[in-house]
């Protein structure tokens, strides 16, 4: 006999909502970096304007989680599912803030020729975006293997970040006039590196959700 049909439906609704929020975040990361590479102010502005939508989604999902806890008395894995959901949306919301940060940098740099072609930063963005998607797939499918794989991508993002850092440092030493833009780009790189870290947080939560055990994916 199947019990708790309504509860199960709402739980899967929760997952769908988190996926929807994640989709907007992926989009924000992509558009933020794309706007930077193309120096497209309108696109950058659309990322900044879209942030409120993500903030609202976070609050909606938080309310849904609270409602489930208050009305359904979730236990064991159900409880972990909901608690993990609450943590995930905080990570997602922060990723969106970092995307906004990148979009703001785009606006600040507009009209200045780039001191170097953007290669590594878009690669970091691509990886970060993939990590967000995979971390959420792992959550929805409760797939520990997929979650654990995030550690590999995170290492790659970290090493790209150090590479960007070294390059920009050299540029700044050669020509102090680049310092203004170089520090901005450095921030953008740092934001992407942080986004990837938040994706590993999600992965760690997924592992906890499925196994009840704590693991570190980001060291």
């Amino acid at each position: 006999m199947k019990t708790r049909t309504t509860f199960d439906q709402t739980l899967s609704e929760l997952k769908q909502e988190i996926l929807r929020m994640g989709f907007h975040v992926e989009e924000a990361i992509y558009r933020a970096v794309e706007s930077m590479a193309k120096q497209d102010v309108n696109m950058a502005q659309s990322v900044i304007d879209g942030d409120v939508l993500i903030d609202n989604l976070e609050l909606e999902i938080e309310d849904l989680c609270m409602k489930l806890i208050a009305t359904q008395q979730p236990m064991a894995k159900d409880l972990r599912r909901i608690a993990v959901g609450l943590k995930i949306i905080t990570d997602l919301e922060r990723m969106a803030d970092y995307s906004c940060g990148i979009a703001k940098i785009t606006k600040r740099l507009v009209g200045q020729p780039l001191i170097k072609p953007l290669i590594d930063i878009p690669r970091m963005a691509q990886l970060a975006q993939k990590m967000v998607k995979e971390s959420l797939d792992a959550y929805v499918r409760e797939d520990v293997g997929l979650a654990a794989n995030l550690a590999t991508d995170d290492k790659q993002v970290d090493s790209l970040h150090s590479q960007v850092f070294r390059e920009l440092l050299v540029l700044m030493m050669e020509n102090p006039k680049t310092i203004n833009q170089a520090t901005s780009l450095l921030f953008a790189s740092r934001y992407l590196e942080r986004i990837a870290d938040h994706a590993t947080n999600i992965g760690e939560r997924v592992i906890y959700l499925v196994t009840g055990k704590r693991e570190v994916l980001n060291d």
Binding site: M75, A76, K77, D78, L79, R80, G212
Partner: peptide, 13 residues
Amino acid sequence: TRPADQRTEDYIT
């Protein structure tokens, strides 16, 4: 929060 046995999990959830 994290019972070891699936039957416990099924019952308490």
